[in-house]
Design a protein around this nucleic acid. Structure first.
Lengths: 206, 206
DNA sequence: TATTCACCCTACCAACCGGTCGGTAGCCTT
DNA sequence: AAGGCTACCGACCGGTTGGTAGGGTGAATA
């Protein structure tokens, strides 16, 4: 029997609305700087109602992180699976990472915040939200090296610099947007992208 | 008349002891996650005594940021002034930035936190603590290009990637230290440094 | 000797925090 | 009609926050 969702109270997606609001809030003001009350207000419910869906602030925060990291991981796997060539795989993954940062800056900032706030938790085995991501990419590069498509270099060190540059740039965007003119900002956005691609090309391919 | 500083109460440097403790605390737990009481405890005074030296939490935080950024700026100017060759200047500055991150990770994390927490404040004219820094470096590169020592590329985009990669790596160190073995960690530290130098070399000099 | 002043303290405050409690409204199943 | 369920709420709790008021102390100044 199909369940009818009442129109007057679309309560079924209250949970996801909370998650969305929490993602933005934690991203903007961090875990300690965000009160669950302010999140509840954004969803237009009261605090006890929020705590009905997520039994504690920590649980809510954890749910947000898990949603973000799982989406990131799924994107990576999909990207790698959809191409054969290692060179194109790497470029596509970097492109996906770039678009992720541009389209979901909240999530990019959140992941970085978590690394700063909670290095030991962020690092714990299956909990570092970029560890499996980086590991997959490392192996991709090693495959490319074995096939002779990539130059010989340390995959991890290389990747960390490229991912770091990209991630850092993304979280800087709100700041940059304010100190640069609109045209300068737009130009830098394009230039940085081309610069990073050029770096990857001359370091890995040539 | 020279003022004698009493030995029993070296109160003159209570202020700097507060600053040091605050730098560490804010770096570890952020502005909202840090209570002035915990800072006072670290200095072994009571909260009102701390508020006697810095009249509010915001003021203290501002003083910490100013101390960090002024030292960073002084280092940059000293480094540039102590060399003639643009190529060597750039390498020395990057080296200085690297050592800053290694020797004062607290400060590196703090600057990044400030960018996340307060993009509009962090960006405001004379208050973005890396803006003048980046500007000086940009001009250095432009000089090198005019002299024909550097390749032709967009200085800002290039710099942002290099600085970003380095800064990102530094703030990742606590996390990396926990997911890697001691030997792997040490190896990565060396490799990343060489990798970044290689990137600069082949992109800017060759 | 009297006064000032920097420094540190105890005691206190209103505001806010995360979280619990008892209870209500409405829907679904039996 | 009864019972159970989810979603939601007002009132409240203990505890912590940044900040204030005011008093004590000891050294420099006059």
């Amino acid at each position: 029997m199909t369940k009818l969702r009442s129109v007057s109270s679309p309560s079924g997606d209250t949970k996801s609305r909370i998650l969305a609001a929490a993602t933005q809030a934690f991203s903007e003001t961090g875990f300690y700087g965000t009160s669950i009350n302010s999140i509840a207000e954004a969803v237009e419910i009261k605090k006890p109602s929020l705590l009905h869906h997520f039994s504690s602030k920590e649980k809510l925060y954890g749910a947000v992180l898990e949603q973000v990291s799982s989406r990131l991981m799924a994107d990576l796997e999909h990207t790698i699976a959809s191409t054969e060539n290692e060179k194109q795989q790497l470029l596509n993954v970097m492109d996906g990472f770039y678009r992720w940062g541009k389209e979901r800056p909240d999530e990019a900032i959140l992941i970085l915040r978590e690394m700063l706030d909670n290095p030991q938790r962020a690092a714990s085995a299956h909990n570092w939200y970029l560890a499996p991501w980086l590991e997959q990419l490392c192996e991709l590069i090693r495959r490319g090296q074995q096939n002779g498509h990539f130059k010989n270099l340390e995959p991890m060190a290389f990747l960390y610099n490229m991912i770091g540059a990209q991630h850092y740039f993304v979280v800087s965007l709100p700041t940059l947007k304010q100190i640069l003119s609109a045209s300068d900002f737009k130009a830098l956005l394009k230039q940085q992208r081309e610069e990073l691609l050029e770096l990857i090309t001359i370091r890995l391919f040539q």
